[in-house]
Amino acid sequence: METFLFYAQAALVVVFAVMTVAAHNPVRSAVYLISALLGIAGLFLLMEAEFVAAVQVLVYVGGIMVLFLFVIMLVSVRETVRQAFLNRQWKTALVVGIVLAAQLLFLLVTGGRIFEVQADPSLIAQAPTMNTESVGTVLYTTYLLPFEIASVLLLVAIVGAVVLAKKNI
């Protein structure tokens, strides 16, 4: 069952990712990207990371992609559809991308067993806790300083976005 779910979700994610990149209309591209992100959230659920899956749906699909759609609607869609959709360097880019994919897949096929690391048995033996609970505990103890820095980063991003999008500064 897990195997079937993984392959179904993975095929969905890859197909929607390709369609995101290949769609002429930016609105369609954004909708395909939303589907791909939802598929990735499903994969997170499959890996028992419920909290990150919920954050993925809330922040990415509910926040970032709505922002993208707003901006696509603000800049004229019709003009961008009529333009040529590949840039001048697309042949080089395609070759570089395919070579990179071949290298990564070769590495993973020949040396993939290195990544089959085993978990510490004592960690598995522990009584299972709720995923959100354990993420929250680690986030507010071990990673407290990075958490605070991330909040400052978000504040800077808010101010920066307002300043950039304002008409007369």
Partner: peptide, 15 residues
């Protein structure tokens, strides 16, 4: 890799 190819090939900044 799909994301990289898209980033390098498309001309629309939003995409």
């Amino acid at each position: 890799t799909i994301g990289l190819i898209g980033f390098l090939m498309r001309r629309n900044v939003i995409i």
